[in-house]
Amino acid sequence: MNFSIAVMQAFDGLSLFSVLLLMALGLAIIFGLMGVINMAHGELMTLGAYMTYLTASGFEKYAPNLMGIYILVAIPVAFLASFALGYALERLFVQWFYRRPLDTLLATWGLSLILQQAYRTIFGSGEVSVPLPSWLNGPWNLNSTIQIPLNRVFIIALAAGVTLGVYVLLNRTRSGLRIRAVTQNRAMSAAVGINTRKVDALTFALGSGLAGIAGCVFTMIGSTNPGTGQLYIVNAFIVVVFGGVQSLMGTVLSAFSIAQSQSWLEYFMSGSMAKMTMLAIVIVVLYFKPSGLFTTRVRS
């Protein structure tokens, strides 16, 4: 293996890392922090993807000369749409299941089927895709042998920005403090004066909004159909569980190790063998460390 191939492999891993991270961040908040098993999380990503498609179609029709920047508008649109749907879902649906994890699993799975059918009815069952803005098209030639796709660079930067934003929100703001308190002890948080119902709804909505951003990004690497979310949800759960729930840093490190190992394994074996090896490693690790790789321990 020469130097150029090594750089491109590492970059490939980095790029997969940023995709996994974007997928897992929303789930890390909803499943990791709140403990809600949301099987419809994938459909929230799909919503983000469809919102991006709608934004792109809108730009194409009404402002074709601004097509270059539609993606910058689509990101907040996808976030807000999924945020709003997440907020409504929490208020009308999920909040009734907080103490019943198994029922949540079934109920949100049903919800996921309903949403898929809704997408099929609204957008049709075929694939839709959006054109990549010209400035994200093509490779960035570092030298004659190292070529790095520009859209992947954009995704990496976006993942870094979103992760930083979530970190600052959770650890440096009053809202973040409320979220961390409520997710550790809901009853006690209410007894120190925190409006837990509002915090629950906003936390769930935030996780959903992040899923929307992930969905937006997926339009840059593949097409969208009503079942797209199902492709991503399993990976997102693996990343969160492997990293250890309740820890954002764990999610980041877990996404990084899974992505890098998979990308390097793919170089030495076929894609599906690499995937299988990766899953086997995850299972072995979880057998010995059931609470995940990166957990914070305290005395009580």
């Binding site: 403090l177 961390r180 550790q184 009853a187 006690m188 209410a190 120190v192 004066g193 409006n195 914070t296």
Partner: peptide
């Protein structure tokens, strides 16, 4: 609800303390 009672002027120190274990003292 509890939080509205806190707003009205009741505060609670529960049995077993129930501090938030993962938050630091200041938080």
């Amino acid at each position: 609800a509890s939080y509205a009672r806190v707003k009205a002027g009741v505060a609670f120190v529960p049995q077993g303390r129930m501090i938030f274990p993962m938050l630091n003292v200041q938080e």
